[in-house]
Design a protein around this nucleic acid. Structure first.
Lengths: 138, 138
DNA sequence: ATTAGGATGCAACAGAAGTGCATTTATTGT
DNA sequence: ACAATAAATGCACTTCTGTTGCATCCTAAT
């Protein structure tokens, strides 16, 4: 079991109180969060700090960015099965139109997509919209 | 061959000079455009008018909205094969990381996506990112 | 021609994203 | 332990997209 401190150090970024708090916040949430979500949770901290912390996490493959079609960028922790830096191993995301939550469906891989001649596919973003398990009443 | 005037009338919306111009602009472009693109092309017109014109087109299934992951909403004309109002007939979009252009790959349909128990899929947004035919040098 | 309703233009606002700079905090070398 | 250095944080400000309210203009119908 790796501690958060060890994870940050292994990425070569400094361990600070702010970063540990934000990491824990992301770990507790099971859904993708926006910068505003983090801002609301850490009222005392400055927006810029949160913004740059998330950017640092993103650059070091600690979180990955999700564009679920709401127009607001969301972030989620990269998990064991999430090799989001490896282009051929992308999972998909599910956005619930009722609760507005977005979750990673890590175990669901994106099928191979064919593109026309001359096009080179490097990356795929797939968001399924609908009703999540909690809102569908099951 | 249906004229633009006839198309607008068939949708029950008024034919105005502005709308004809914007429609023609979209028809000439083969790529999805942002509101800013339209704004730059029609310097004299007000942003709000362009915004509301596009919204009107969207509500009447004349254009469809594309979220290609750039964070900026783009729009493209609905073509013959584009039944963007029918949820089961969604095509995919390709975003070029070099020229930044986004095109509709109308003939490429999105394969059936499986979601976990309890989740209800209603809609799918699929964007392939990579290098387009023009930028790949073919 | 008059009138009613939609279209357009102007102004203003909200939210997200991003940058520059000063200050604080942490790390390194002596 | 202390100074020097580099990174992290906080503050202020800017830009861009998207959006709404209101007044005015134009079009269409009677």
């Amino acid at each position: 079991m790796e501690t958060i401190e060890q994870l940050l150090e292994s990425k070569g970024i400094r361990v600070t109180a702010m970063r540990l708090l934000i990491y824990k916040f992301l770990a507790e949430k099971e859904i993708a969060v926006t910068l505003s979500d983090i801002e609301n949770a850490f009222g005392k901290a400055d927006r810029t700090t949160l913004y740059r912390t998330i950017k640092t996490f993103e650059e070091n493959d600690i979180v990955h960015q999700i564009d679920d079609g709401t127009g607001i960028t969301k972030y989620a922790l990269c998990e064991q099965g999430c090799n989001c830096n490896i282009k051929t191993d992308l999972h998909l995301h599910f956005h619930c139109s009722i609760c507005g939550n977005t979750v990673c469906l890590t175990e669901h891989k994106i099928p191979q997509i064919k593109v026309p001649e001359g096009f080179v596919a490097e990356n795929v973003n797939l968001v399924v919209k609908g009703i999540c398990d909690k809102c569908s009443g099951q």
